[in-house]
């Protein structure tokens, strides 16, 4: 712009910078980062995982609480029995992963929405991702490394805890 600033301004706003000299507060400027489909995928994932979780969770609750003896049947051996079946192993694994990712992404969104300072946002997200990772890894390990037939030091099955099928081994 062919603009010459005159040092002897005739009517300057005293002590105040001209509110608009073509500049925009940096907090409104978008960083030109590479465009990716991540946010779109995240958005789609929330809808798909949400729908899937409704099925997964309600079947889970129905099987655990309504079928057979209902709530009274739940004990160590009930869980062990379920996880002896690969279908239930897969079911619970899916439920764990979807629920954790769904929840984490939801929390990420809330942090994005409400954290005003960049540093706060970064810290909160770091804690969130770490805790999500720990739970997912732990949960996955439990599902796959679960030992249904607990024994005492002598190698005998623990009575009343180990499920029926352990006795057949």
């Amino acid at each position: 712009m062919a603009t010459q600033a005159n040092p002897e301004a005739v009517l300057p706003a005293q002590g105040i910078e001209a509110p608009r000299s073509g500049r925009i507060d940096p907090k409104y400027l978008r960083s030109r980062t590479s465009r990716s489909n991540f946010e779109m995928m995240a958005w789609v994932f929330m809808r798909v995982s949400g729908a899937a979780l409704v099925v997964l969770i309600f079947v889970h609750l129905w099987v655990n609480l309504m079928v057979g003896d209902g709530i009274h049947q739940i004990d160590f051996s009930f869980v062990a029995g379920k996880w002896a079946n690969p279908v239930w192993q897969f079911w619970d694994l899916t439920m764990l992963w979807l629920a954790m990712l769904h929840g984490t992404n939801g929390m990420r969104t809330i942090i994005n929405d409400y954290a005003e300072k960049d540093s706060t946002r970064a810290w909160l997200k770091a804690i969130l991702y770490l805790s999500a990772a720990v739970i997912i890894i732990l949960g996955t390990m439990v599902i796959f490394t679960f030992e249904p037939c607990l024994t005492d030091e002598a190698g005998n099955l623990l009575e009343g805890v180990a499920p029926e099928f352990c006795h057949g081994v």
Partner: peptide
């Protein structure tokens, strides 16, 4: 006259 700053 720039309304924002009152400058000419």
């Amino acid at each position: 006259y720039d309304l924002a700053s009152g400058e000419i």
